[in-house]
Write a protein that binds this DNA or RNA. Structure first.
Lengths: 365, 365
DNA sequence: CTGAAAGCGCTTACAG
DNA sequence: CTGAAAGCGCTTACAG
């Protein structure tokens, strides 16, 4: 802004003002704050006292960040809206892990929601803006299967990236579990329990806002989402048992909520003839929804219907849900470590099948 | 860094590189991104295409922030550690409110924990660092009663401030409830139910890590914390009923956890002779702890013991806890609005006494 | 141990 | 509609 007077023009105090008042250079004032070894204790104390007397709040973070090229902040980027993120215990457990590790390292955490509105084009612009304008040293991308545009925008930024819960990409380190193997193990477990007639409640496989049964074409083009990996795992185990994919109804949920689980159950349990003896859900929340609908129909679990989940959120233990335990907190911590790990190695964390009471031998038919 | 070559020295692409490649000034490139009306559509498209071809990630946020003097980010500053914050439904509801409003306004949210270690001096240095170096346009200070050093450090920053849940300060706008009145109403309700022998489980009144009964001296010097306001409200109602403070045991909890509530109950319910007929807790979590200990002693609620809470978290409804409902989400949203409201007005939100089944007429003695 | 000055990568009022 | 240049407020290699 040519023509304006010196640094006081903005009405704020700057390093320069302190330097002038103390009769030293700005370098010395800067050093007084950030590099105590660069000046004598006496001078440092004097400078700091004068700054305090003047009411100088300390070096401006914005200027400092530009100068040193870092901000000490990382962003957690996720495709859900905030209310959802703060209500989902799986997301919260993950955030707890990220945040705890951040705190340990003295790094600040920024939350960056990139709306999950349906349709490939919808969120394009806002996403770019928020991603492009966040002053961070690294980005943690969470559950962005199908959000290739977001991932692309993120990778343009010249900062380290790590992806949580998404199929491998060769160019970005990933922290994940083996979704295929975990799902396959669960399905084998269901088969071993004696079930031949099963249904699947899937998480979203793409970004089109669809909830409902997947038709053959949709099933044939499930892509590479987390849900796709798990679906393949289920199919693999059922295939081993001679149960073909065409005999298995799959209900896809746009949202990971109990409500979607209930809708799925409503559609699957409606006709007694075709009712499966076991329903495999891709999340505990979906499974809880299925159980809620089953209860409404007076179906006893596991006597009349077996149900399995995925995640092992606190509610799972409370309701006796047989499920796959994921180490959410560890996942979050591992993500942050990976972000600043120069080797760029991906991590696959172990899962565990937790047997409770919601799965048993089918009792009738 | 004198002596280094031009902007390519850091190996990163800058506006300048794009300008050079496009044969225009940096102003034009900048305008192409941020002020489309400042150049023709043709030129803009050409510039953007060249930037894209070069792999330019767009204007660097750090430099942009320094230039425009804003970051589009606000920080939520709280005195608990991250694991606690992500486990407490009251804090989460509040954050949900803040975050939803942030999302609506296109503002990013930063989480800034300032450790709650006991002792006045302990957290001083780290607190200053994280507060001083966060590049934000505003600070939301949550539940910082007793953290005057943090508040002071925050107010040095030349950014808008808002305080949630803390006694009024003349210089900073506050979003809160009327803790005194809400507590007094609850205590009146307890008196009206016929109780004369009561106990209080308090939140922390100071920053010394103390958990246990408050002796008269401690009670006489409770200061201005949220807990102090509520304690005065309880006392006021009991005083109206002729029940003096000296006859009321008060157990102070350093942490707002079920565990601390259980400890309080253990101490208060130990001797049958002096056992109160009603326990007023300053939070639902503390109340749930009291109920848990009561259950262990085979005390029926409310037959053998009445219990009241404060907050109305989801668990309260599930357990029939009579409590004070706080509008957490609205509180968070109001805080963000207040932050950018030039009037600097404080807000006091309404609370509601929710009657459930944990309070009844005392049945014995 | 201290200071003068270039540099970080943008934005923007102003002149043309 | 476009460009030259000052300015945002720091940090730091280097000279003294």
């Amino acid at each position: 802004m040519p023509g304006r007077s010196r640094s006081r023009s903005s009405g704020r105090l700057t390093l320069k003002d302190v330097a002038r008042a103390a009769g030293v250079s700005t370098a010395t004032v800067s050093n007084a704050y950030a590099r105590p070894d660069q000046l004598s204790g006496d001078l440092r104390r004097r400078v700091l006292r004068i700054a305090e007397d003047l009411g100088y709040p300390g070096p401006d973070p914005l200027a400092r960040h530009l100068s040193i090229g870092r901000t000490g902040t990382v962003a957690f980027v996720f495709s859900e809206d905030m209310p959802y993120a703060f209500s989902d215990s799986a997301v919260l457990a993950l955030l707890r892990g990220v945040a705890t590790e951040c705190e340990r390292k003295g790094i600040s955490l920024m939350l960056l929601p990139v709306r999950a509105k349906a349709g490939p084009a919808a969120p394009r612009q806002p996403v770019m803006d928020v991603l492009a304008s966040a002053a961070v040293d690294g980005l943690i991308l969470y559950a962005l299967s199908g959000y290739d545009d977001v991932v692309t925008a993120a990778s343009r930024r010249q900062v380290p990236l790590v992806i949580i819960d998404q199929p491998r990409r060769t160019d970005i380190p990933v922290v994940r579990i083996d979704d295929f193997a975990a799902a396959r193990d669960m399905a084998r477990h269901v088969v071993r329990a004696g079930h031949r007639s099963v249904g699947i409640v899937s998480l979203r496989t793409r970004r089109d806002g669809y909830s409902g049964f997947m038709d053959p074409e949709r099933r044939a083009t499930i892509g590479e989402s987390t849900a796709a990996q798990r679906l393949r795992g289920f199919y693999a185990a059922f295939d081993e048992a001679g149960i073909g994919p065409d005999t298995i109804p799959v209900w896809e949920s746009w949202e990971n909520t109990e409500h979607n689980g209930e809708q799925a159950a409503r559609d699957m349990l409606a006709r007694k003839k075709t009712r499966p003896t076991a329903i495999l859900a891709m999340s505990d929340r979906l499974a809880l929804g299925v159980m809620a609908d089953a209860a409404r129909r007076k179906l006893r679990i596991p006597h009349d219907l077996s149900v399995t989940g995925f995640d092992d959120i606190p509610q799972a233990a409370a309701t006796g849900l047989t499920t796959i335990r994921q180490p959410f907190t560890e996942k979050g911590a591992a993500a942050l470590r990976t972000l600043f790990d120069t080797t760029g190695r991906s991590t696959t964390l172990a899962t565990e099948l937790v047997q409770r009471t919601s799965l048993a031998h089918p009792q009738f038919r």
